[in-house]
Structures are given as structure tokens and as C-alpha cells.
């Protein structure tokens, strides 16, 4: 027979109250504890409390999710599913739809290529000036070339005039007006006179 102040049994029961309430103890063990409870009001209170807790927990209702939460979640998922299906339908579509897709993609690609800035480095902003300068240089070279030609021609004409024609003319007029006593001088004039003489003699 257990005594109310038997602390060993009380402590032992504290560890087994839940198993006792759940009827999980062996029959002999359960009987011994039942006898202790009859003489120990503190342990009996603990068993009552454990029983109340168990009953209260098991009596708690399952709660419904608020409808607005379900509507929100399911609405979002329906929209996502609808979008996903529209894409899938496009991929499953027969030829003409694919042609339309291909044409749209090609048009988009073309638009991107045309509208997007080129990846090559942009020409410098003063390219027009360079072009003008190049043209001016070309004109200057052409002008210099023309001047050179004219100068060369003038030089040739001048040399011939001064060094050939004029002396020849002077020599001719002198020879026609003066006696041929003077010794012939070398040079173009004398050469020209010699030539003139030879021509005349022949």
C-alpha cells in the first residue's frame, strides 16, 4: 500500500502520467499507479490535468482556410496556367502558325538590326572637314600639276625663244646685212649659220 508522502512513487508517476492517461502502461504497472492515485490527491490532480489537456487538444477543431486566401492563390495559378497554355498551344500549332511566328521573329530581328546602333566605332565628328580638306588637297595637286606643265611648256618655249630662235634671227639678220669677215663663233648661232650656209650651198 502506497503512502501519500511516498515521494519516489510520486516522482515515478510524474514521468508516467501521459502514458497512464494514454493507457500505454503494462497492466501491473497501471494497477500500482492507480492505487497510488487513490491515496495521493496531488498526483490525482496531475492525472486529471493531463487528461483535460489531452481531451482539449483532441477537441480542437480543424480550421478552414479563409476563402479569400484560396481565391487569391487559385486565381493566380489559373492565370499562370492560362498564359502557359497559350504559349504551349503556339508551339504545338501546325505550319501556318509557325510561318507567322517565323515571319514575326524575322521582322523583329530586322528591326533590331536596323534600329540598334552599330557595334562598330562611330566615325569621328569632323569627317566632313577631312573630306573637304582631302578634296582641296586633290585640287591643289591638280592645280600644281597644271602649273608645272604650263611652267615646263613656258620654260621650253622661253628657252627655245631666247636661246635658239632669237639668236638665230639675230644672226641671220646680221649675216644678211654685214660681210662675212668675222670669224665664226661657236654656239648655237654659229651652228645655225653653218647649217644655213650648208643648206644654201647645197
Amino acid at each position: 500500500m502506497s503512502r501519500p508522502d511516498d515521494k519516489t512513487q510520486c516522482q515515478d508517476l510524474q514521468l508516467r502520467i501521459e502514458a497512464f492517461v494514454d493507457k500505454e502502461l503494462e497492466r501491473t504497472e497501471a494497477t500500482a499507479l492507480q492505487e497510488h492515485l487513490e491515496i495521493c490527491p496531488a498526483c490525482a490532480r496531475q492525472v486529471r490535468l493531463a487528461t483535460e489537456i489531452r481531451q482539449e487538444l483532441r477537441g480542437l477543431p480543424e480550421l478552414d482556410t479563409p476563402q479569400h486566401v484560396l481565391d487569391s492563390v487559385l486565381g493566380t495559378m489559373r492565370r499562370n496556367e492560362s498564359r502557359r497554355r497559350s504559349w504551349l498551344d503556339l508551339f504545338r500549332a501546325p505550319g501556318p502558325a509557325w510561318i507567322a511566328v517565323g515571319a514575326t521573329a524575322a521582322a523583329a530581328l530586322f528591326a533590331v538590326m536596323v534600329l540598334m546602333p552599330s557595334q562598330e566605332p562611330a566615325p569621328p565628328e569632323h569627317s566632313a572637314e577631312v573630306e573637304i580638306a582631302t578634296e582641296e588637297a586633290r585640287l591643289a595637286i591638280a592645280y600644281l600639276d597644271k602649273l608645272t606643265h604650263r611652267a615646263a611648256r613656258d620654260l621650253r618655249e622661253d628657252v627655245v625663244q631666247k636661246r635658239v630662235v632669237a639668236p638665230a634671227a639675230r644672226g641671220l639678220s646680221r649675216s644678211l646685212n654685214a660681210p662675212e669677215t668675222a670669224a665664226p663663233k661657236s654656239g648655237p648661232v654659229s651652228d645655225y649659220r653653218d647649217l644655213n650656209d650648208r643648206t644654201r650651198s647645197s
Binding site: 515521494k7 510520486c10 516522482q11 510524474q14 514521468l15 496531488a42 490532480r45 496531475q46 490535468l49
Partner: peptide, 8 residues
Amino acid sequence: VYDHVPTG
């Protein structure tokens, strides 16, 4: 809360 003080 309910003065069921455990004895253990």
C-alpha cells in the same frame, strides 16, 4: 495557472 503544481 490552475494551481495544479506538479509534485515532481
